[in-house]
Design a protein around this nucleic acid. Sequence first.
RNA 1: GCGGUCAUAGCUCAGUUGGUUAGAGCACAAGAUUGUGAUUCUUGGGGUCGCGGGUUCGAAUCCCGUUGACCGCCCCA
Length: 437
Amino acid sequence: MAGFQSLPGFRDFYPEDFSRRQHIFRVWRQTASAFGFQEYDAPVLEPLELYKTKSGDEIEAQLFSFKDKGDREVSLRPEMTPTVCRMVGAKAGALKRPIKWFSIAEFYRYERAQKGRLRAFHQFNADIFGEAGPEAEIELIALLVQCLAGFGLTKDDFYVRLSDRDLWFFYLEALGFNEEQSRALLTAVDRFEKMGDDAFKGYAEAHGALPADQKDKVLAFLKVKGLAELEATLAPFKSDKLSARLTDWRKVLAGLAAMGLGDFVCVDLAVVRGLAYYTGFVFEAFDRKGDLRALAGGGRYNDLVKKLGGPDLPAVGFAIGDVTTGLLLEQRGLAPAHVTAPDVYVVIGGEAERKAAFADIHALRAAGFKAEYPFRELAFGKQFKAASESGAKLALIYGGDELAKGIVKVRNLTDRTEHEVPKNQVIAAVRDSLSGD
RNA sequence: GCGGUCAUAGCUCAGUUGGUUAGAGCACAAGAUUGUGAUUCUUGGGGUCGCGGGUUCGAAUCCCGUUGACCGCCCCA
């Protein structure tokens, strides 16, 4: 027990853990594929500069970064977005639009590990490039919902909060704030849910105290919880920008409602999402109970591909994490049982019978059946016990008596019936017995 | 990076004011059972009590340090 252990925030995946992880990946992959997204992958190690360019120099504190032996500044990837922007940007001219891509990959962040937040974790990333309209948001939010609903989670388990950074900027502009003030206010909005009034301290220090009537308007906007309320709040403002945004909002909500997903999505302008390269809609998925970290997050980032050296290409994307998703599935009893049961367990009389059994065991496996047998000679009683414990549906009995008659006994371990089949028809007999149920 | 709680077998835990060789249940393995699965019984493997140091005749127990997990702060792409 002493000796080595895994690094803090890193996990070992024992077979049982691995099968839970695979189940999560399988649902994500199937769902993305049904939505017409194509899978890609990319290097785990990237130039450090890629992340600094996207997020600023401060980001290095949260990275697994180092100098390689060629003196290059590199970092394990903390997220997929810059990488996929680089990839798409490099070939944007040759890719058919809209570009719908997804990936399932491991990421690394040098942070203090807590429940639901580790240093190494997996994310499902889905992005749409080349579509400036809200149709891309509809597609992605629908995908996000289905990526969680695919596990059996319902509208009572999770929901998606939809907000809009552009709408906030246009609204604050209409209230008379300049861009710098607006950014400071959005930081306050982001923290308001957690800190309450103290969230505005930072703004007051930089730009002076916020007049009471202005603050009321900001708080009122932050508390908007529906489209009708949003429209009413914005009605007094004669702004083309605001009315254009409202048109997009109606499209997104109407589209999702038409897909039957209205109950999964709510308007919630309190969401603005932290470090902001987002340029329009932003959204986050949470469990309804609210005792877990965010399940997923994403939004539009129209400027990023260009910022990273590519063409001017609009983009929207989101990521779902495996850690929080796994915790939620566990809580709701939706984590699948770890199943290792073979299709058939072969009971072998003794050394003499072993060779005859081996021929059929291998033929069964080559035909795609999961076949198990005991490595060592065991009493029949033991073997039947082992067969039963293995979870196999069938036992094939290769005893001296049977082989002398040129047959094999097939025992149904569920109803405990037995029948004999000619040895040269074992595979067909197994296929028949298994297709029965 | 800062504060708090915790750490005994693979898992869940017990372990008295510091006192002999640290225990239980579950799990795992063998046997009772050499041609049919249950139950039961017996037996076994597995611990330098997270790690290092200190106090003491004696430490799982007290003290200091350290590592890790969890909780809160910062951050959350």
